[in-house]
């Protein structure tokens, strides 16, 4: 069944405390090439049947209204993934 993937990231100007903690842990494991980490969220919405334009539009609206908070987050990607 097809899925709609929604990716949500903290806004660039919002400090991401979790990403900051992760970037601090990386060098301890020998990964020294990464200067910044930002942690986001990936949602997978499964659709029974075909993903129509209307269903995709619903996913975009749900992403803005529920899956993300526009004060602190951006919806950076909404796409259909076929299995």
């Amino acid at each position: 069944m097809p899925r709609i993937v929604v990716d949500v990231m903290p806004k660039p100007e919002i400090l991401d405390p979790q990403g900051k903690a992760i970037v601090g842990a990386l060098p301890r494991l020998g990964f020294t090439a990464f200067s910044q980490v930002r942690q986001g969220k990936r949602f997978e919405l499964t659709v029974d049947g075909e993903v129509t334009e209307e269903i995709l539009a619903q996913a975009r609206t749900a992403a803005e209204r529920l899956l993300s908070n526009p004060v602190i987050e951006d919806v950076v990607n909404v796409e259909v993934v076929a299995d």
Binding site: I14, Q18, V71
Partner: peptide
């Protein structure tokens, strides 16, 4: 979240 008040809360800076 209800937009009755502006802004939002995120994790404490010290986690």
């Amino acid at each position: 979240e209800s937009h009755l008040l502006p802004g939002s809360m995120i994790k404490n800076d010290h986690l």
